[in-house]
Every structure is written in C-alpha cells, then in structure tokens.
Design a protein around this nucleic acid. Sequence first.
RNA 1: GGAGCAGGCCGGGCGGUCGCGGCGCGUUUCGCGUCGAGGAAAGUCCGGGCUCCGCAGGGCAGGGUGCCGGGUAAUCCCCGGCGGGGGCGACCCCAGGGAGAGUGCCACAGAAACAUACCGCCUGACGGCUACAUCCGUCGGGUAAGGGUGAAACGGCGGGGCAAGAGCCCGCCGGCGGCCUGGUAACAGGUCGGCCAGGCAAACCCCACCCGGAGCAAGGCCAUAUAGGGGGAGAUGAGGCGGCCCGCUGAUCCCCGGGUAGGCCGCUUGAGGUCCCGGGUAACCGGUGAUCCUAGAGAGAUGACAGCCGCGCAAGGGUGCCGUGAGGUACCCCGGCGCACAGAACCCGGCUUACAGGCCUGCUCCCCUG
RNA 2: GGCCCCAUCGUCUAGGGGACCAGGACGCGGCCCUCUCAAGGCCGAAACGGGGGUUCGAAUCCCCCUGGGGCCA
Length: 120
Amino acid sequence: MPSIRLGRLSQEEDFRRVYREGSRRTTALLVLHARPNGTESVRVGLVVGRRLGGAVARNRVRRRLREAIRAERGRIRSGADLVVVPRRAAAAASYAALRGAVCVALDQAGMGGAAEERGR
RNA sequence: GGAGCAGGCCGGGCGGUCGCGGCGCGUUUCGCGUCGAGGAAAGUCCGGGCUCCGCAGGGCAGGGUGCCGGGUAAUCCCCGGCGGGGGCGACCCCAGGGAGAGUGCCACAGAAACAUACCGCCUGACGGCUACAUCCGUCGGGUAAGGGUGAAACGGCGGGGCAAGAGCCCGCCGGCGGCCUGGUAACAGGUCGGCCAGGCAAACCCCACCCGGAGCAAGGCCAUAUAGGGGGAGAUGAGGCGGCCCGCUGAUCCCCGGGUAGGCCGCUUGAGGUCCCGGGUAACCGGUGAUCCUAGAGAGAUGACAGCCGCGCAAGGGUGCCGUGAGGUACCCCGGCGCACAGAACCCGGCUUACAGGCCUGCUCCCCUG
RNA sequence: GGCCCCAUCGUCUAGGGGACCAGGACGCGGCCCUCUCAAGGCCGAAACGGGGGUUCGAAUCCCCCUGGGGCCA
C-alpha cells in the first residue's frame, strides 16, 4: 500500500501498468517489478500486504525497504517505475538482508529494463 | 521475614551522522530553525460532540437498560450504599424489577412436574380359615408423616395430637402480608397475623425508563467534462423525511448513453492536562488563580549506522565463605544475545483485550525477635 | 478509517435448550459383488473456533476474545 519519495507511485493505474508491462525479478525476500517510464524521474511503489503482519511489522518492513532503496539508488537507471513487493519472509529479515536483496534485484532488473527498451 | 489483597505510575536514557512528514523563516533546483505516536494509538463494545438528511413532531414496530441514591455532555461507564455468594482476613464476584396477569417449557426417571396417590400406614364392609384376635384376598374411605425417582415433590427441626396422619395445634427458624421505628431510597430492626402458591423471564411476555437515521469514504467549495444527448413519469401530487403509518414538505424525479474519478476546506486548542484553594465519604464539581499547551499524513511521515550507560537472560573464568563431595552463595572480570504489547487518520469520555521488566502507597494473615 | 455478516466431520451443509442429537451428501478406510475396474450394497473413522456466564442441563441463550468474508468516494 505505501510508497516512497524520490518520486512515488500512487495511482492504481500506474501499479497495474508496471505489473502488466514491466519485467519481474524474484528473490527469497521480495519481488521487484520494473518498467521504463520514458521520463527522467524514478518512481517507486511499495506494496506491503497484510500477510506481513500487524501495522508495526508492516511499517518496519516498509521503512527498511525505503532506506535500502535510498542507499542503493545509484544502481537504478533513470526513467524507471519500480514496484517492490516484500514476501512473507521479509517480515523477519534484518535490514542488511533486505538491502542485499534490493541490491541483487536492482542489478538484474536494471539490465532487463535496458534490454527491453532496446527491443522496442 | 514469608504469603497475599487493593490502588496508582513508568514502560529504556543520553548525545552524534545520513534520511522522512508538518510548520515558520531565508540570499526559494536548496538551506536553517522547530515539533513529530500510545497507555492501550488496538478491538469497534457503549456514550457524546460535529456534519448532512427541511423540522427531529406523534404512534406502531424494533432495539437497549433494569436493587437504591448520586456523578456526568452522555452511557451498558464511574462513585457511594443495600441485598446475595465466596474467602481465616485485607478484599473479591453478581443482567440483582415482575413467576400473587397470561402463554410456554421442565428431557430421563418417577404415581405425580403443579396438582397427583405406586408402594406403604390407618380404617369400614364382605369373603377365606375354627371364634369378634392374628393373617390373606376383593371393593370403598382417610392420609401425605415413611420408601423410592429426580436438578426440583403444596417449608425445616422438635413436641403435642390422632385410627393413622397433616400448621391440625404449640415453640424456634425460614418465607409471606399488615402495622410501627430508622433511613431520601433500596432496605434493616421490632411486633402482630397466619401457614397461603415449585423452577425457568440471558423463554415469549408484563412494567418502568431511554433511543429519529446515517456516518469525516459525513459534508461543503473549486476545477475538468464527444454534452448540456435520447426515452419516460409528474400540482388529479413527482420525489423526499428511519422499516411502516399519521403528519410535514412541495418540483423535480427515474432509465439509457457519456464524462470526471483531481485540488482545497472539514483537520486539530479541547466537556484539555498539571499544581494550588474551596465544597463533597467518593465519583466529581466550582475558582477573576498559576502554569503547560504544539503529530496532523493522504499508497499514508519515526528508519539506517555506530557509541556510552541502564535492565534482563543463559553460559564461561577468577577470588572469598559453607559443604567430605556433587554443589550452593557473595563479589569481580571478559566477550555474547535480547529490551514487552504494539503505530495516530474527525475529536473526546468510558469499557474490553494485549503487555518483558520495574517503582510507589495503603492494608490483611502467618512466623520470628523485642 | 467506518459499517455489516459468518463460524458444525477433510469439503458443502441440517439442527434455534433435553428425547431420532450431534444427522445427511461428496470424499476417505474396510468388506461383499465382478475375471478386473467403475457403478451398486453393507460396515466404519471423522466435527459444534476458544474462554466465561445463565439453566438441573447449552452446538443452541447472553458477554468477551480469535479467525474468515462483504460493503462505502
């Protein structure tokens, strides 16, 4: 449900477009959807479902992910829409583990996004 | 010293670096300053404020509450008292009106579940034995003491009385009714009468009191909109006002097709907290008193990194003491792990539920010492 | 954030205070039938979400938790 600065995704339509047209990378802790948006800005949406736990647990996961993405923002190509969906295991994961998962997913998706753009 | 009861409180602290949200300021791609979750923010179980439904009117239906008195904006909450139950006690628990209005239910067992007689007891007539005694059988009457059933059987114990019995009579207890006394009242105490009537209303119900409905996604404003498109109903009353009716209102409403699904307000200072003074047993109320007031997001702000201190946990080492010993205990040290329950979304008052650890106050019981 | 529903064998359900109380269907296991399988027949295992209360007695009535589901501009 929540999102991040650095450009946030908010509209339901935007989320659906990323799901439909973007690439998808899955790790043990999270799923990353990515799609070039044709602009200079980067927008990120976080989807933290109720299966992650109560409000405190969901807030903790969302804040850690937001911090991890901020720290690793150098790895993101400009002009991308990202949707990060933490999986159930993320609720028990440490910040370091989450940051590692973000790092891996961003590296793979960054290449995928570029390849997809070339294909058009 | 040990066990326990009641009430209240805290719920990690300190300062860095990088980030986030609001507000303010500034030489507005940025910088500076400042503030930034809870006692339950939770469950949404009650009650209010606020907003809209024209007014929030009457009746029915429906729902809620239910000893008495008080507090409050209000309550199913709180305080005080009464009654009942539990505990040696401090104290705790109780939806606790009416079954002497009606309906219904009370399985199984039992004769009978609300008015009855199975066994039994007593007795009359007749018959059977030899005789009016005893015994047995049949028919009738009396009885509710005893047996047995059950969760529950026209009150319990003792005595008198009687053919046997029975509140039939007497004493005590319990219940009911009248009167008197105390209390605002619930009720308590006394006295007289008399023995009359099972339980369940968290079964229907009766009585008393309360409740109009929705909910900030309420509601209001602005902007945008192949467009002001097509069809139908309507002052002989459309439609609306809670589920219905009365009553009120009075010109728009319904369907098809199409568009917008963005911004601003509501949005945080209020039945506000703390202290003091006064009133009250208390809840609470009053005060020209003093002081503190600062989260306000909108896919939804508190996180990351490292340090010091505090607390807890289970292990390791050293020293002292006790013990033959396994071990126990006190202090110190090194490194480690963890720090509960849990996250505001219009706001308040309650209730309920979750919660590592710790602190304070008052009280009870037991043991020891004086 | 607010407002409403629901809960019974593995699944779908019946039962709304005692007795036919925990019944039925599908599924599961065993046996019979058949050369074998299916179908059919017989038998069996299997549940009232949790905790309190009312009652002599709760799946059923009341309260509190827990877990699902739905609606809103």
